[in-house]
Every structure is written in structure tokens, then in C-alpha cells.
């Protein structure tokens, strides 16, 4: 008989004991170790995930802050640049205006000075010329300056050329009021008579005259009739002298302006 029933029973008992022993010493400890390791790994993974999420959120926050900071810096820089540019423009404009004003003032002062000098020079020249002429005429001819002036005036009257003479004659004839003879001083009666005679003679008519003394007509005689005029005055010479002096002053003033 191949089957020994006592051995079968003993082997059943042996097997059941082995099951219990292996459960106790093999399966349970090994499975417990596996479970605890899995749990630990899961915890570590969860912790790693959590820290990763945290790190990502922190990184995002930092990036956002960086971007914001960059924007703020750029805005501030831009604002500062614009302000600096505005200030520069304003200062430049102010300086330019100040320079322009100063220049204008200086030029104005120079012009005033030149004008004053001109006037003084003209006045002095006229007086000097007048005095020289008066003295020269008195010394040389023994006649008064007034007489000589009247003589010159009469000569110019006679020397009038055709067209001018015609225009003047026309003016005298159409005049409603007496023609005016102006001089820097009151003419003596013989001078008046000589001028009257010269005019009558020149235009072949009896011309009504009115004599006036005018200090503006410096050292000369002026005849005016209905807008037409014949004049001779030292002022003419003084005018030309003044022009020359003015030119000279301008030439002197130009380098200073530059």
C-alpha cells in the first residue's frame, strides 16, 4: 500500500503547522516591510510633490515680482529721462532768451549811444561849420554871413534849370496864399528886397512873399510855394556829414556785435 494513513495525517498536521509558521515568520514580516516601505516612498513622493509645487509657486511669485520691478524701473527711468529732457530744454530756452535779451539790450544801448553821438557831432559840426563860415566870410569878404547866404540863395534861384523853374513858376501862380521864405534868422530889409527882386525877376511876376524865422533852417534860406521848394542851407552839408559819420560808426560797431 502506497498510502500510509498515519503519515498522511502527520503530513497534514505538518503542513498546517508549516503554514502557520511561515505566515508568522515569513509572509507577515516581509509584507509589513513592503507596506511600510511603500508608505514611506509614497510619503516622500508626496512631500517632494508638495515642495515642488511650493517651489513652483515661489518661482512664479519671484518672476512676477521681477517683471513688476523691471516695469517700475523702466517707467521711473523713462519718467526721469523725460523730466531731464524737459528741464534741459527749459534751461536752454531760458539761457537763449537771456542771451537774446542781453544782446538786444546791448545793441540798443550801442545804437542809442551812436545816435546820441551822431546828434552831438551833427550839432557841433553845424555850429562849428557855421562859425567857421561866418568867421571866414566875415574875415575874407567883409560882409556878413547873412548877406552872403542871401547872395548864394539868389544865385541858385537864377541858376534853376528849365523844368524845375517851370514847376516852381506853376506852383507860384496857382498858390492861394503868399509864398514863404524861411531863414534861420530875421533877414534885414535890404536882403528881403533883394530876394523879392530876384524872385520877381526870375519868374517875371510880382510874387507875394512872407518872411519867417525858423531855427531849424540852420544857416540857410528856404523858399516854399504850394509844395514846391528851393532851399540852400548849411544843414544840407551837415546832413551829408552826418551820413558819413554814421557810416563810420556802423563800421566801427559791427566788429563789436560779431
Amino acid at each position: 500500500m502506497l498510502i500510509d494513513w498515519f503519515t498522511v495525517g502527520a503530513q497534514v498536521v505538518n503542513f498546517l503547522v508549516l503554514v502557520w509558521l511561515l505566515k508568522r515568520f515569513l509572509y507577515k514580516p516581509i509584507l509589513d516591510a513592503l507596506d511600510s516601505r511603500e508608505k514611506r516612498i509614497a510619503q516622500e513622493l508626496a512631500a517632494a510633490d508638495a515642495s515642488k509645487v511650493e517651489a513652483r509657486s515661489e518661482r512664479d511669485a519671484f518672476q512676477a515680482k521681477n517683471v513688476e520691478f523691471d516695469q517700475q524701473r523702466a517707467a521711473l527711468l523713462n519718467q526721469a529721462t523725460v523730466e531731464a529732457e524737459a528741464v534741459r530744454h527749459r534751461l536752454l530756452e531760458e539761457a537763449r532768451q537771456a542771451a537774446t535779451t542781453l544782446n538786444a539790450k546791448r545793441q540798443e544801448a550801442l545804437r542809442n549811444e551812436a545816435r546820441n553821438l551822431n546828434q552831438v557831432i551833427r550839432h557841433r559840426t553845424q555850429q562849428e561849420v557855421l562859425a567857421i563860415a561866418r568867421k571866414a566870410l566875415a574875415d575874407l569878404a567883409g560882409t556878413t554871413l547873412e548877406a552872403q547866404l542871401g547872395e548864394v540863395f539868389r544865385r541858385r534861384l537864377r541858376e534853376l534849370d528849365g523844368e524845375a523853374k517851370e514847376r516852381l513858376g506853376q506852383a507860384i501862380r496857382t498858390a492861394t496864399s503868399p509864398s514863404v521864405v524861411r531863414s534861420a534868422f530875421d533877414l534885414p530889409p535890404d536882403q528881403r528886397a533883394a530876394i523879392q527882386a530876384a524872385l520877381n525877376d526870375t519868374f517875371a511876376a510880382e510874387i507875394p512873399l512872407r518872411f519867417e524865422a525858423d531855427r531849424d533852417v540852420i544857416g540857410g534860406i528856404e523858399f516854399a510855394a504850394n509844395g514846391q521848394k528851393v532851399a540852400w542851407s548849411i544843414a544840407d552839408y551837415a546832413d551829408s556829414l552826418e551820413e558819413r559819420v554814421a557810416e563810420l560808426l556802423q563800421e566801427k560797431g559791427r566788429p563789436e556785435e560779431g
Binding site: L2, I3, W5, G9, V12
Partner: peptide
């Protein structure tokens, strides 16, 4: 042994 295999 058939006893062992029978027991199992």
C-alpha cells in the same frame, strides 16, 4: 511519498 501528496 503518496502519503505526503495525498495529505497536501
Amino acid at each position: 511519498s503518496l502519503s505526503t501528496t495525498a495529505a497536501l
